[in-house]
């Protein structure tokens, strides 16, 4: 009905508003969802543990390529000893949380949206309501909690794998001294400003990505095209939201 271009902005705003309201509803359902704690555990398994392989593989490669590039670039300034440091800082502050969130949106976010969307399309959510089970507490909140818990853990695993990858390239392959690699890293990387801030970022990304995924699934048009469209939107909006939020958080955290 409102296909005129002037109303596009209004539609977008309405979506954001609806998403915000949905967040409040989900947060309100979190205490009730603790009754279905098993379901939360199951979701952490699906969302987190099942993403481990892709996260670990990507982490290894990202670390390796960072090591390769930085060693090469820093050697030009005679500072190849700092390779490990720069790799670690880049990972902990930016790449770890951001890349993990993007992978997470593609791997777990889409499956959350498709799953909930199909539940909507086949009346399973309505069936739960009729059995006096609140789908917000049984379906949405456990996935939300799972995302918030799993993404930081995944980001840590990603970072650890990336450090190992960088170490393998710089030390084992390019011949940088192992002691130099580690000591420079430990001298310049700070637990609070680097590691912990990165963890906070990925907590926020986890919340945003799963919120968008759950919201899109919950509001799917009950058709096959509706589910397909919702899944695509999850990836697009999660990625944009992650990168935008990353900028904001970087500006305020450091």
């Amino acid at each position: 009905m409102s296909a005129r271009p002037t109303s596009r902005l209004g539609d977008a705003l309405a979506q954001v508003g609806a998403c915000g309201l949905f967040l409040l509803q989900v947060l309100g359902a979190v205490p009730k969802s603790l009754r279905h704690f098993r379901e939360t555990i199951r979701q952490i398994w699906f969302v987190g543990a099942m993403s481990l392989v892709i996260i670990m593989t990507c982490g290894l490669f990202v670390g390796a390529v960072l090591g390769l590039q930085l060693y090469d670039v820093l050697s030009r300034f005679g500072a190849s000893a700092m390779s490990g440091t720069v790799v670690a800082l880049a990972l902990y502050r930016e790449l770890g949380p951001v890349v993990t969130a993007l992978l997470f949106a593609g791997r777990a976010g889409t499956s959350i949206t498709a799953e909930i969307g199909l539940m909507r399309a086949t009346d399973q959510l309505a069936a739960m309501e009729m059995m006096a089970v609140d789908p917000l507490a049984y379906v949405a909140a456990p996935r939300f909690i799972a995302g918030v818990v799993a993404l930081p853990l995944l980001a840590c695993v990603f970072n650890a794998m990336a450090i190992l990858g960088a170490h393998a390239v710089c030390v084992s392959w390019l011949g940088l001294d192992g002691g130099t690699f580690w000591s420079n890293m430990t001298a310049s990387v700070d637990v609070w400003t680097d590691v912990v801030n990165g963890v906070w970022k990925s907590v926020a990304f986890g919340a945003v990505c799963t919120l968008i995924a759950t919201f899109n699934g919950y509001t799917t048009a009950p058709t096959s095209e509706g589910v397909a469209y919702a899944t695509t939107r999850t990836v697009v909006f999660s990625s944009i939201a992650t990168l935008a939020l990353d900028f904001v958080m970087t500006a305020f955290l450091t």
């Binding site: 199909l118 539940m119 009346d123 399973q124 069936a127 309501e129 009729m130 059995m131 006096a132």
Partner: peptide, 28 residues
């Protein structure tokens, strides 16, 4: 609370597709 006392058979069954027949019936 009221719905807990009401049984509803959906026109399209609306079984929970991730659960077995047993778990579907056991769900409530």
């Amino acid at each position: 609370a009221l719905r807990e006392k009401i049984g509803y058979l959906f026109q399209n069954s609306a079984l929970l597709t991730d659960y077995s027949v047993f778990e579907n019936v056991a769900f409530p």
